[in-house]
């Protein structure tokens, strides 16, 4: 299953890069992300809850950053499984950042996701929609967060953001 998404963030490319490579800021933007743990400089572990109608699942996912060319390119792999290994998920993703002027960045990513096991039996069409909606939610959350922080650099919302960060990192 291929998923691709492009969205714009009103922030300089370096800042977007810093945020998008930091699990502490990315994790809270991932819909359903329950917790995460940094394993090494290039890998982390997360628990993500995914609901598909009546089916609710928790995936334990390990993400490895496989290639980074700051501030424009990041490749990663993710593999995870549902409790009881009823389903397994693997994803290879590529993320590209493109500066759109000094204070604007276009983020685009493409993932090849493979889901096998019980959730693999779920209708592919509906699965793609689900993935797309997760992607869209992520984009909104990420943009909001980065833009809020960018604005706070101007001295408005600094405390709020750091509080969030503390919470997410805990």
């Amino acid at each position: 299953m291929q998923i691709a998404e492009t969205f714009a963030v009103a922030a300089p490319i370096e800042r977007v890069w810093r945020f998008i490579t930091d699990p502490a800021t990315v994790a809270p933007c991932v819909p359903g992300c329950q917790s995460y743990e940094v394993l090494t400089a290039t890998s982390y572990k997360a628990t993500i809850q995914i609901a598909l109608g009546p089916i609710k699942t928790n995936f334990n996912v390990i993400v490895d950053l496989t290639k980074a060319e700051p501030p424009t390119y990041l490749a990663s792999t993710a593999r995870g499984e549902e409790g009881g290994k009823a389903s397994t998920l693997t994803a290879k993703s590529e993320l590209r950042l493109l500066a759109n002027g000094p204070g604007a960045t276009t983020v685009s990513y493409a993932s090849e996701v493979a889901l096998v096991g019980r959730l693999g039996k779920f209708g592919l069409g509906m699965m793609k929609k689900k993935a797309k909606s997760i992607g869209e939610e992520f984009a909104v959350a990420f943009r909001t967060r980065v833009e809020a922080e960018t604005a706070s650099q101007g001295g408005t919302a600094g405390e709020v953001l750091s509080a969030d960060n503390a919470q997410a990192g805990a």
């Binding site: 299953m1 090849e112 493979a114 693999g120 039996k121 592919l124």
Partner: peptide, 13 residues
Amino acid sequence: WDGGKVANPSFMD
């Protein structure tokens, strides 16, 4: 197939 996986392995699909 979806990648390497048979995407419609049921009489539903």
